[in-house]
Simulated assay, not measured.
Amino acid sequence: MKTIAIIPARGGSKRLSNKNVLSLGGIPLMVHSILYAQANSDIVDEIYVSTDDAQIKEVALQYGAKVIDRPEHLSGDFEPTVSALKHVLESIEINVESVILLQATNPLRPQNLLQETFEVYQKGNYDSLFTVSRNHQKLGKIVENKFEPFNYTIGQRSQDLEPLFYENGLLYITKANLIFNDSIISENAYPFELNSIFANVDIDTQDDLELAEYLYQKFITHNS
């Protein structure tokens, strides 16, 4: 039973054209996830990129990943990520137990994150695990031009807020049989808390890419 990494990398980005192959730190954006999986070869047996784009396919093969050609009907703007993962599993012949989802648009991850999360995932015998980060903001809704606080009362200090967390997208680990049932996160999934500045990076705009470049140069290049 093998553990594989899957990197969905669709072409045709609307807000930031060709974002999956734009340069970050001198290499294409999605390659950061390929290299991250390769650096964890003691856990990851195979690395697959799922794409509908010829340029992305060429780059993925150049950097040593295997490519699964994603059909057009699974490549639309509103198609859920799980459909790409399921298609990969249906397209390969190896016996897969666990899938590590590495999203190309979350390229920066702490070096030891996969080691730490996979140990928790195995020891706890979880169906799935995903990374979360704490939100420290005062949140609310605007209803009929009136602001209604959601997680605090007016005048309450930020440090006294009840903890709220968000799914940061950096890493997911899931049993293959869960994906075959069209899920990535199970009801009893383990939320692995990660309070890292990298959790703020999810590239969808030029500003996001520039933030990622700044953090890459500051925290990764200078520490290598």
Rank of each mutant, 00 (worst) to 15 (best):
L61N: 12
R157I: 05
H136I: 10
G124C: 14
P110H: 03
E167Q: 09
I47L: 08
A84L: 01
E58K: 08
D127K: 14
G76K: 12
P80A: 03
K86I: 01
M1R: 13
K14V: 11
K141Q: 14
T221L: 12
V132T: 10
L108Y: 01
F78R: 15
I179F: 01
I43T: 12
M30K: 04
Q38T: 03
S41W: 00
V44I: 07
A176W: 04
D52V: 08
F192M: 05
E119L: 12
D52F: 09
K138L: 10
Y126C: 14
V59E: 11
S133K: 00
V49H: 05
I100K: 05
Q103W: 12
V132D: 10
Y48H: 09
Q103V: 13
E148D: 11
I4P: 06
A176E: 08
V143Y: 01
E79S: 11
V59Q: 05
P110A: 13
D208M: 00
F198R: 02
L164T: 08
I7M: 02
F118Y: 05
K57M: 13
V49I: 08
T205W: 00
P80L: 03
N112F: 15
Q38A: 14
D127R: 15
P71R: 14
H136K: 10
E167A: 06
E119P: 10
E97G: 10
I4V: 09
F219M: 09
F180V: 09
K14R: 10
S75E: 13
E148S: 13
L171F: 00
I34Y: 02
I100C: 11
A104I: 12
Y126W: 08
E116V: 09
G124I: 13
I68K: 06
N106D: 06
P110T: 03
Y36C: 06
L178D: 14
E162A: 14
I43W: 07
G155L: 04
D69E: 15
S33R: 12
I7Y: 00
Y36A: 06
Y190V: 08
I4H: 02
E193K: 11
R10K: 04
L24M: 06
G169H: 02
V67T: 05
F180W: 15
L16N: 05
A5L: 00
N112P: 13
D53L: 09
A65S: 07
Q62E: 12
S13N: 09
R70A: 14
L209Y: 00
L129T: 07
S183V: 07
I197S: 04
G124H: 13
F150H: 09
I142R: 00
V132C: 09
I154G: 05
S91D: 14
Q159V: 09
V44Q: 09
Q137W: 06
G25Y: 04
